[in-house]
């Protein structure tokens, strides 16, 4: 095992004569605490990953009803398929375009709310409530808001004499419509996490900067933004997980269309598995997604890992 390689900081550190852990030789009994959790972790996370990795090298679809080894055929098929590249483009577009503006505005609103004494709870809840609404319900609500003739958005647009938009029904706008709705849904959640992070910032720093004549924007740019770094890292990770697994709203609002213009990776996996019944291709896509997610994890922890683990302890 990787003994002695401190992947994550160890607890305590100082030797401790009375500690329960010193009860060796029953040291191995400590595993008992992990067994139940490990069992389900292996059964529903790591076993599935191994299985789908194996399946991604098998042909298994309606024409070949038993899994049959086929090497990298599934990956080659995807590589040569335009829709796959469109889906990848859409996924990364969705992730980048929705994460950074949401994070930035969430932080700004957290700061503004943190500075208010009156009406705090009102502001928190009015921004936070969309997080609580099930995505399926939010999706239905927004299908209605976006509806071409009866939808409130197009009615407002035409009141101002502007042309109506196709929203979900047009390949130009469908992904934007989904991004706007997802922004509305996630903003309050990130805001709340930032608000928790702001509670750790030393208020005296602001006083000092104020006395030195720094304005509001300058104070936060120089103090708040760097000091909430660890929180931003946490928010970034949560945001990546949330947006890479986007499915519900796509299934209910656009079904990836029109013309795959809003198809993203998890929906594409679903389509291949449960609509085209091509389990081999769906497994290959799962492998690709897992590799992307693991790569992003390594990247994030490699770049900022020390900061998050040490400040969190």
């Amino acid at each position: 095992m990787l003994k002695g390689v401190p992947i994550l900081p160890r607890g305590g550190g100082t030797p401790h004569s009375l500690k329960l852990m010193k009860e060796s030789p029953e040291k191995y009994r400590n595993y008992m605490f992990l067994v139940p959790g490990m069992f389900f972790l292996l059964l529903f996370t790591y076993l599935p990953i191994m299985w789908s990795t194996w399946l991604s090298f098998n042909r298994w679809n309606l024409l070949s009803p038993q899994p049959k080894w086929c090497g990298v055929e599934n990956f080659l098929k995807l590589w040569n398929h335009d829709v796959f590249w469109l889906v990848m483009k859409n996924s990364f577009f969705f992730v980048t375009v929705s994460i950074f503006p949401t994070m930035f505005l969430a932080l700004v609103f957290a700061i503004l709310i943190d500075e208010r004494v009156k009406g705090r709870v009102y502001y928190i809840y009015s921004l936070f409530y969309p997080t609580l609404i099930p995505m399926a319900a939010a999706a239905m609500l927004w299908v209605y808001i976006y509806s071409p003739n009866l939808g409130v958005l197009n009615i407002v647009l035409s009141k101002f004499g502007l042309p109506k938009l196709g929203w979900l029904g047009s390949s130009q706008t469908s992904i934007w419509a989904l991004i706007i709705m997802t922004f509305w849904k996630n903003l309050g959640f990130f805001m709340l996490i930032y608000l928790a992070g702001l509670q750790n910032v030393n208020r005296e720093l602001y006083e000092a900067a104020y006395i030195d004549g720094a304005g509001w924007w300058r104070r936060h740019l120089a103090i708040t933004f760097p000091l909430v770094g660890p929180t931003s890292l946490f928010v970034l990770i949560v945001a990546i997980i949330l947006t890479f697994r986007v499915f519900d709203q796509i299934h209910l609002m656009t079904e990836g269309g029109p013309g795959n213009s809003s198809n993203v990776i998890v929906y594409y996996i679903y389509e291949n598995g449960f609509k085209f019944f091509d389990w081999g291709i769906a497994s290959a896509l799962t492998t690709i997604l897992v590799v992307i997610l693991l790569f992003l994890t390594l990247l994030i922890f490699g770049l900022f890992g020390k900061r998050i683990t040490y400040t969190a302890d």
């Binding site: 994550l8 959790g37 490990m38 972790l41 059964l43 529903f44 996370t45 790591y46 076993l47 599935p48 990953i49 299985w51 789908s52 399946l55 990770i237 990546i240 997980i241 890479f244 697994r245 499915f247 998890v266 996996i269 679903y270 598995g273 389990w279 769906a282 497994s283 799962t286 997604l289 897992v290 997610l293 693991l294 992003l296 994890t297």
Partner: peptide
């Protein structure tokens, strides 16, 4: 292993989980 699971939500490994 527990921390990595945070990055791998059920939605991303839906196919094998369905089969299991």
């Amino acid at each position: 292993l527990f921390v990595i699971q945070i990055m791998l939500p059920l939605e991303s490994i839906i196919i094998p989980n369905y089969l299991i």
